[in-house]
Amino acid sequence: MDTFLQQVINGLTAGSVYAVVALGYTMVYGIIQLINFAHGEVVMIGAMVAFTVINALAPAGLPPLAVVLIGTACAVPVCMLVGYSMERLAYRPLRGAPRLAPLITAIGVSIILQHLALMIWSRNVLAFPQIIASRTYFIAGAAITTVQIAILAICVGLMGGLALLVYRTRLGTAMRATAQNPQVAGLMGIDVNRVIAATFVIGAALGAVAGVLFGTYYGLAQYTMGSVLGLKAFSAAVLGGIGNIPGAMLGGVLLGLVEALGAGYIGDFTDLCQYGWLSGAIDACEGGGQFILAGSNYQDVFAFIVLILVLVFRPSGLLGERVGERA
């Protein structure tokens, strides 16, 4: 039981980081139907900038929490700038072009950002200075650290804040209007370009925070970290229903749980020796041996399988209302 609880805690923590990254994908997609392939790289840049700042301030003797906050405060504007320039230079000129064009551009942007980061921060894995003394609490045998608790709290806060922004402010109303129909929104006096730019910028800011959370949780950052994280977060967004903000949150948390529980239990379920009628047929089972079809080595497949299954059987995702009528 403690193992199961532990896996749930692991899944929730990883999942809430996915959720925050997924918000960036889903907001952009919701508004201009673009898969912003480069969003993962924005997250990476957020982590890198925070690393540089925290690393520089760590020996200064400031309280650790202040150092991390300053790091985040530096990462957010940098990422916002990256998000804005991306939209302005690479995507806006292509609005109205065939769907494949911005996607290919996004891949290009992602490659460029990754290798610029490589040139600035080197190829090496950067170890985040471990300044926050992480304390571990045990609940029914399951360990949870202060960092994990903080991550969960921050993620919930961010999601709540975003929901408020989208559903309670003028900008949010403008965003929703633009998502429904940009032309009509324009006629209603909404500056569509500004709203789209704002969406990118907000998504990038969330990405920056996610990058810092990732960095402090795992204690490292690397220029390649964005691509895997981005793909998983994208899968999460699709799972929840892309374009749908609560969906992204739900999808992120679910994907985190699926991965943790999948990696934790798939080996037990695919051990053919536990199925009596099969174990007789397999030599390896003799004397308490095991014949495991698939173990934790398939951990990274889960995200992709979820992605494919959802897209094939329920393209609108779990919470998506707008079914793929935009063929």
Partner: peptide, 19 residues
């Protein structure tokens, strides 16, 4: 114990370690 695996990019080992 049966072999557990990650990849050369894995950062989250918690699921495997918990098991």
């Amino acid at each position: 114990l049966p072999r557990e695996k990650g990849t050369d990019k894995t950062t989250d080992w918690k699921a495997v370690l918990t098991k």
